[in-house]
Write a protein that binds this DNA or RNA. Structure first.
Length: 930
RNA sequence: GGGCGUUUGGCGCAGUGGGAGCGCGCUUCCUUCACACGGAAGAGGUCGCUGGUUCAAAUCCAGUAACGCCCACCA
């Protein structure tokens, strides 16, 4: 590879690489034979996106995180599978197809149920793969060979089994309740499918005349936010203890309901708060859940005044045919005309909206199917309490508990056509009814024709089975072994708004149907992706960003890394596309580091590098203890990570290898806690600030040195790059693969996708505190020289002389380390070292720069600006004096010396001593300059 | 009404008991043979506020303010 362009071009490499990976079968369970079948399988089920959907930023983030986990597990050789598929999304899909029909002037009723469902399937065939293709575009390594769908054949069987079992266990029942009705979707919704939004409205105080005045009282005033529902009022309720109404109650007062001319009672009910409004509540049993309960207690009739589309029906007298908004205006106008509006207050309250179409929900009395939740919830609470299922971050378990402990029965019937039809069959002849696993046409009792329930099930009723229905459950026995080996899955990653809708229900159904096993060990609740101002991204705000646009502009790797890097445990993610520029720069940096290495590999082959002839250390003065010995022993590092063996010959080599070992350990540790942001930052700073900024610079000297030095530098550059690419691969799969395939690492794996994850244990032999110390010393000296040059505008071409006085605790070691780095000092800072010892003296005409454990004297004969230098020294001295005073005060404090940890005290003492010496030195120099 | 989260340099964020870090932006210098999507050197913060615990608080506790999110049937 000789002609690498300066900039990384993702568009050119991503699609072909992905196609190659797919063709090779790397994403399938046994990863084309590379997985170690002895290891525990690693499975994630994707939260199935809606077939109607296209990728949004939340998906982009969520699927990035899952792919990071999956790719890493795959490189660790666990049998890995990321199960992918789509959700039939009852309401959403039905809405799409209905609006398509509407364009032809048709409704679903015009075409009929069968043809409509057929149209839904066609729609899915046409558009259902959009989001799957987008996942591929992001580089997601799902097992695309067996895509699942929540209406697959076996899935239908799963649904029926669950329904029938629960029905026969008495957990599913039908009942007349006030449910949430969406008049646009014309279906019932579950409580958690309703979004409550605060709406600025009014509280209307309406006079309800008594049939017979009680004393002076001729009417009651009721307060309401929904005056139009008065058409369905069947009582007025007051609190039985309310002194204002005791006389009325005693007299058995009755109301003549305005506009409807209906006589309704005044009832006493504890539900009524005396402090709100007038303490008198109009009771509309068919359109309010509380009123429904009051009506049950007082045996009041229910009058439904709405059609399914929320128009006033025939029970609404003169207002029949009006929609609910017009009805409100008309009712108010009429009441006003009759002088029955007492007064009006501004009032803001929460109003339910459909989570699919945003229409205002109508509480509606209706017969629906429910799941009794209490018995299912109890064990599901337990498994989270005893950590069989862990929430990450943990605080989300509180949200889960809160909901589960107050759980209400789940309305599962939907008045839709697209979905799993409720498998309950009725006989009109004899009244027989049952839930059946297989369709049946005739009554087993009287042989009359049966008919099936018209409703379909809530989409979440099928989604809850996703972790095991995707394994073919209950299609035993062929899937039983698969399920036994691979269940539970490892991780479920999702957004927080889905904890109730989905996560909780998967846990409950899994516990019930899979012998008490949980569906996954860890739940990751990832941050919400907000726009750059911190607003939720939404269609109505128009502030959404299409992830595929980002992939087009920056490449999938940059988007993935950028998203992962911004994940924290506590904050939502304010996403600014401009910020991706940072990560594009990082990708370019990686690209160019690789480019540099490729340009310097003349004469290098991986095969040549595998001869374990370790070169004699270049600097023999460095009889460096442990690390060198360990590395010289060729058995210390196995050859199955990469066949290129590094050589820790110089301090720089030892340093970068030590840092690499530390990074690997750190990533492994953070990964267990799902800390994606800190992993990304660790990778970023290792690669850029350590590998590129320093190691590659060090290596340039070695590359220009003897053939032995050059060969050693080459193999170390290849080794570290190879390892870094492995560590980066889960986050940036394309870029890393494109480089890795060209790199002569000697590894025979055909792709980084199935190569080995760096082995923390094997790398641990490179941990080397001394080498890390050496880089601190070197960097301190180089920085001192560079900043001095900058201050006095001294050209980098002007060679400088320095003397270094060592002031640390182990000056012998420091001297040795710095001596060994002399060559690096010369080339990176263009200087020569005059003296290096604990007794070094300050040369004539030099400036002093202090660093940790070093006093650096830089000879600047004829170059010093005395005024500037004096100012700088004074400032430096002052800062140190402030620190010294603080330490003196601290050490003089008996509380500190008696209570603080001994090491903390001795550190403070050391620091003070050091500071005092430094201050003396600085003052001497200041005196000299003055 | 209840719960959760956030508040650290201009902006976006790390940092959980021993004297604050990163990226962007900003200032100055450098187009020298990986990278100007670059390199080098700098400036910039009394860690929302008040009180407490502690020898020691950005970090623990209490209170308070602002912002955000979730749950909740006062019409």
């Amino acid at each position: 590879m000789t002609e690498m362009p300066k900039n990384y071009d993702p568009a050119a490499i991503e699609a072909p690489l992905f196609a190659k990976w797919l063709k090779a079968g790397y994403f399938e369970r046994d990863a084309a034979g590379f997985a170690d079948l002895q290891l525990e399988p690693y499975t994630i089920v994707i939260p199935p996106p809606n077939v109607t959907g296209s990728l949004h930023m939340g998906h982009a983030l969520n699927n990035t995180l899952q792919d990071i986990l999956i790719r890493r597990a795959r490189m660790q050789k666990r049998p890995t599978r990321w199960i992918v598929g789509t959700d039939h999304a009852g309401i959403a899909t039905q809405n799409r197809v209905e609006s398509k029909l509407a364009k032809e002037g048709l409704t679903r009723f015009d075409v009929g149920r069968e043809a409509f469902v057929e149209a839904c399937w066609e729609w899915r065939e046409l558009y259902g793969s959009t989001i799957i293709e987008q996942l591929k575009g992001m580089g997601c390594s799902c097992d695309f060979t067996s895509e699942k769908f929540t209406m697959d054949k076996n899935y239908v069987q799963a649904i029926r089994k669950v329904f029938v079992d629960w029905y026969h266990a008495g957990l599913i029942y039908k009942g007349l309740r006030i449910i949430n009705w969406c008049p646009r979707c014309t279906t019932a919704l579950a409580d958690d499918e309703v979004h409550h939004l605060d709406v600025e409205s009014h509280l209307w105080y309406v006079k309800y005349p008594l049939v017979q005045p009680v004393g002076e009282t001729e009417y009651l005033v009721v307060a309401t936010t929904r005056p139009e529902t008065m058409l369905g009022d069947t009582a007025v309720a007051v609190n039985p203890t309310d002194p204002r109404y005791l006389a009325l109650l005693a007299a058995g007062a009755q109301i003549r309901l305005p506009l409807m001319d209906r006589v309704i009672p005044v009832v006493a009910d504890d539900y009524v708060e005396t402090s709100f409004g007038t303490g008198a509540v109009k009771v509309t049993p068919a359109h309010d859940p509380n009123d429904f309960e009051i009506a049950k207690r007082h045996d009041l009739p229910q009058i439904n005044i709405f059609t399914p589309e929320a128009y006033i029906n025939e029970n609404g007298g003169q207002f029949v045919g009006l929609n609910r908004d017009d009805a409100r205006l008309a009712v108010l106008a009429e009441l006003e005309a009759l002088g029955l509006i007492d007064h009006i207050e501004e009032y803001s309250h929460a109003v339910g909206h459909c989570y699919r179409c945003d229409t205002v929900i109508e509480p509606w009395a209706s017969e629906q199917w429910f799941v009794a939740m209490a018995d299912l919830a109890a064990p599901a609470i337990e498994v989270v309490r005893d950590k069989q299922v862990r929430f990450n971050p943990q605080r989300w378990e509180k949200v889960y508990f809160q909901w589960m402990e107050n759980i209400r029965d789940w309305c599962i019937s939907r008045q839709l056509w697209w979905g799993h039809r409720i498998p309950v069959f009725y006989c009109d002849q004899c009244g027989w009814q049952d839930a059946l696993l297989e369709d049946q046409s005739h009554c087993p009792v009287c042989s009359a024709e049966l008919h099936q329930d018209e409703d379909v099930l809530d989409t979440w009723f099928s989604s809850q089975l996703w972790p095991f229905a995707t394994y073919g459950w209950p299609g035993e026995p062929e899937h039983a072994a698969d399920l036994a080996r691979n269940y539970p899955t490892q991780v479920l990653s999702t957004a927080r708004d889905i904890i109730f809708l989905w996560v909780a229900r998967m846990i409950m159904s899994s516990l019930y149907f899979l012998d008490g096993s949980v569906p996954f060990a860890d739940v990751i609740i990832h941050p919400t992706v907000l726009d750059r101002f911190g607003n939720i991204m939404s269609k109505s705000r128009g502030n959404g960003i299409d992830p595929m646009d980002l992939v087009g502009e920056f490449g999938a790797d940059v988007m993935r890394f950028g998203l992962a890097a911004q994940v924290t445990g506590t904050q939502d993610l304010k996403f600014d596309r401009e910020k991706l520029g940072v990560y594009r720069n990082f990708a370019t940096k990686i690209h160019n580091a690789a480019r540099f290495i490729f340009m310097n590999l003349d004469g290098f082959t991986a095969a040549g590098s595998t001869t374990n002839t370790v070169q004699t250390p270049v600097d023999k003065t460095l009889a460096l203890e442990a690390a060198s010995a360990a590395v010289a022993d060729s058995t210390a590092v196995q050859t199955d990570i990469s066949t290129v063996q590094p050589e820790a010959l110089t301090l720089a080599d030892r340093w970068i290898l030590s840092r690499l070992a530390r990074l690997t350990a750190q990533l492994n540790e953070q990964s267990t806690r799902f800390e994606f942001g800190s992993q990304a930052r660790a990778l970023y700073s290792f690669f850029w600030n350590e590998f590129c900024d320093w190691y590659i610079e060090f290596a340039k000297n070695q590359l220009a040195g003897s053939p032995a030095e050059r060969a050693s530098a080459q193999r170390n550059l290849v080794f570290v790059l190879d390892q870094a690419l492995r560590l980066l691969h889960p986050m940036m799969p394309f870029l890393t693969e494109s480089i890795w395939l060209e790199l002569p690492h000697g590894d025979t794996h055909p792709s980084l996708v199935v190569a080995d994850w760096p082995d923390q244990q094997q790398l641990a032999v490179y941990l080397d505190d001394q080498a890390e110390r050496s880089s601190d010393l070197l960097i301190a000296v180089i920085s001192a020289l560079r900043s001095t040059r900058a201050r006095y505008r001294i050209s980098p071409k002007t060679a400088l002389s320095v003397s270094i006085r060592l002031t640390g605790n182990d000056t012998a070691t420091d001297a040795r380390l710095l001596t060994a780095l002399g060559e690096q000092l010369t080339s990176l800072a263009n200087c020569q070292v005059l003296e290096l010892s604990k007794d070094a003296s300050q040369p004539e005409q030099s400036v002093i720069v202090l660093a940790d454990d070093l006093e650096i004297y830089i000879v600047l004969a004829g170059l010093i600006d005395f005024a500037a230098e004096l100012a700088r020294l004074s400032k430096d001295c002052q800062a140190r004096q402030t620190d010294a005073e603080r330490l003196q005060k601290k050490l003089a404090n008996p509380g500190f010396t008696s209570k603080a940890a001994p090491e903390v005290i001795s550190k403070a003492q050391d620091d003070l001593e050091k500071l005092t010496a430094e201050i003396n030195g600085l003052q001497a120099q200041i005196a000299e300059l003055q």
